[in-house]
Simulated assay, not measured.
Amino acid sequence: MSKMQSVRQQYSFEEIYQQYTPLVKRMLKRLHIHSNHDDFVQAGYLGLWLAYHHHDSEKGPFSSYAFVRVRGEMLTMLKKDASYYDQHSFSSTDPEPVQVAIDTDAWISDAENLAPYLKTLSKREQRWVIEHAVHDQAPRMIAAKYNVSVETVKGWRKGALAKLRKYVK
């Protein structure tokens, strides 16, 4: 038997939960997770629970193991999300990105107050605004949906924000 007590012998899970909540929240920022926060926080707490139950004090400190398990659960969820969007997005056998027409007029009728802002933007910038502001999608999700790179989506965002800033001033 180990000379060191296991974390389960020293603390209840509630104490670990309270102590490691900042780790779970920080991991969202560290992994650049911009949507579905509640789901990813839940995945982080699952990783913490798994670390609590499977930690072996002979192999290293609990804090390092908790970090790895929390990060691992969140990364697994990111991979599953990306895989889901890859399977459920438009695809093409051509190397060219898929061009998807967006019916912004139908969406604008529900939010008429955004119409003047959207009309100043290009179609691609409108895509970013609608996907991000309305559907709360992260750049990687938008990129998967439109079969473009994340950097391309960030370019749409940059252009849209620059134009919107000018419009607001």
Rank of each mutant, 00 (worst) to 15 (best):
K3F: 09
S6Q: 14
Q9G: 15
Y11D: 05
F13N: 06
F13S: 11
E15D: 00
I16M: 12
Q19D: 03
T21V: 12
T21W: 02
P22C: 10
L23D: 06
V24C: 13
L28E: 08
K29Y: 05
R30F: 05
I33D: 09
N36C: 12
N36L: 13
H37A: 12
D38R: 15
D38V: 09
D38T: 05
D39F: 07
D39W: 06
F40W: 11
V41H: 04
V41C: 01
V41F: 01
L46C: 06
A51I: 05
H55F: 01
H55M: 00
S57Y: 03
E58F: 08
K59N: 00
K59C: 02
K59R: 02
G60N: 05
P61F: 08
S63N: 10
S63C: 13
A66L: 09
V68G: 13
V68N: 09
R69I: 10
L75I: 10
T76P: 02
T76R: 15
T76M: 03
T76L: 09
M77D: 09
M77H: 11
S83C: 11
F90C: 06
F90M: 02
S91K: 15
S91C: 11
S92E: 07
S92T: 15
T93H: 06
T93Q: 04
E96C: 14
Q99Y: 12
Q99R: 13
A101N: 09
D103M: 15
I108E: 04
D110P: 09
A115S: 14
A115C: 08
Y117E: 00
Y117C: 08
L118H: 10
L118P: 14
K119V: 01
T120N: 13
L121E: 02
K123I: 01
K123S: 08
R124W: 00
Q126K: 13
Q126T: 14
I130Y: 01
H132D: 04
A133M: 00
A133P: 00
A133H: 00
V134N: 07
D136P: 02
A138R: 09
P139K: 02
P139L: 00
R140N: 02
R140D: 01
K145T: 13
K145Y: 02
Y146M: 03
N147F: 01
N147I: 05
V148Y: 07
E151A: 14
V153M: 01
G155F: 06
W156A: 06
R157Q: 14
A160S: 13
A160M: 09
L161Y: 09
A162L: 09
L164R: 10
R165K: 15
K166T: 07
